[in-house]
């Protein structure tokens, strides 16, 4: 599938991201997809630094920086305010990290999603608290190294299933995306833009310093996350219609894990366990997709 990537730029170069960071690429693509009638909420995260300090900004759309836990409810407030002023057109976007979404911001996100407040929430997931220097979050994968899960005390719990949590809120749209698949990401954003209510996008975005990869490897590693089925690309409509949007090759997880210093300590046995986990999750996802097909809904039918 080929999709047109808009030429317009709403994020300038000269921002402050580390070289090779996936996050500014993600935001740049998102703004291209959503266009100039967009307002963006940024809670504490790497992005609060990336877009530049006062009095500068790398963004050409209005932006408001908010407290760590408040991405979703801040978006609710902007939406309510615009509605009162008769502006139903502007798209309100919250751009939060995995910490701001899976952990400290999950209460506000859950509240807003349950109310089905009208905005697009993008979780830019780099699988740890990177802004504060690589501490584990509940989005950190099983057995990954971080500064708070050092070797000898690795993360023993799986990554939280945020998509299942969001699906449980019966919101109109939730999708995964990856910075290495811009067409897929843009298509999902455009689809989300045309819907109303809470729309959630879980965007995988590698962090070279945090994942212990070279700064020119982010896209390659992000691709491997998808192709190994570690991070499948799919969407969920109304909390129940699951659809795969990209068929991964299904190569062994080692090829993904071996690329990254944060998994360097893994034994063969641990790799095998991770492969089992990935296969199990993949099968579960396939069942959910098939369930949707059995019930007679498919993307074409939508």
């Amino acid at each position: 599938m080929k999709i047109h990537i808009p030429k317009e730029e709403y994020m300038d170069p000269g921002h402050l991201a580390c070289s090779g960071c996936g996050s500014p690429l993600g935001l740049r693509l998102a703004l291209k997809a959503l266009g100039e009638k967009t307002m963006i909420v940024i809670p504490a995260s790497c992005m609060s630094v990336i877009v530049g300090p006062f009095p500068y900004s790398a963004l050409k759309v209005p932006s408001v920086h908010v407290a760590f836990a408040t991405a979703a409810c801040s978006a609710s407030g902007i939406r309510a305010s615009l509605d009162m002023q008769g502006d139903g057109e502007t798209t309100v976007v919250a751009w939060a990290g995995d910490g701001g979404t899976f952990d400290i911001g999950i209460q506000a996100l859950s509240g807003a999603a349950e109310r089905n407040d009208d905005f697009i929430y993008i979780c830019s997931d780099n699988e740890a608290y990177m802004n504060t220097g690589i501490q584990r979050s509940s989005a950190t994968p099983y057995l990954a190294w971080t500064t708070t899960t050092p070797v000898g005390n690795l993360k023993e719990r799986p990554k939280k299933d945020i998509m299942a949590i969001m699906a449980g809120h019966h919101i109109p749209y939730a999708a995964t995306a990856c910075v290495a698949y811009p067409e897929d990401f843009i298509r999902k954003l455009k689809k989300a833009k045309d819907m109303e209510g809470t729309r959630f996008i879980h965007l995988l975005s590698p962090c070279p310093p945090g994942w212990r990869i070279a700064s020119d490897e982010a896209i390659k590693v992000a691709r491997l996350a998808v192709e190994t089925k570690v991070f499948p690309l799919y969407e969920i409509e109304h909390g129940e219609i699951y659809m795969l949007t990209y068929q991964p090759r299904g190569i062994p997880v080692e090829e993904y894990l071996n690329q990254q210093g944060r998994f360097r300590h893994l034994t063969d046995e641990e790799m095998a366990t991770i492969q089992e986990n990935v296969d199990r999750e993949w099968n579960r996802l396939m069942e959910q997709c098939e369930g949707a097909t059995r019930r007679g809904v498919s993307r074409l039918a939508q």
């Binding site: 408040t70 309510a80 305010s81 506000a108 509240g111």
Partner: peptide, 20 residues
């Protein structure tokens, strides 16, 4: 906005106020 906490109550009116 029938928020789920006071922290969100204040955060959301901060946002609505900055939107005018």
């Amino acid at each position: 906005i029938k928020v789920e906490s006071e922290h969100s109550a204040m955060a959301s009116i901060i946002a609505s106020s900055v939107t005018g």
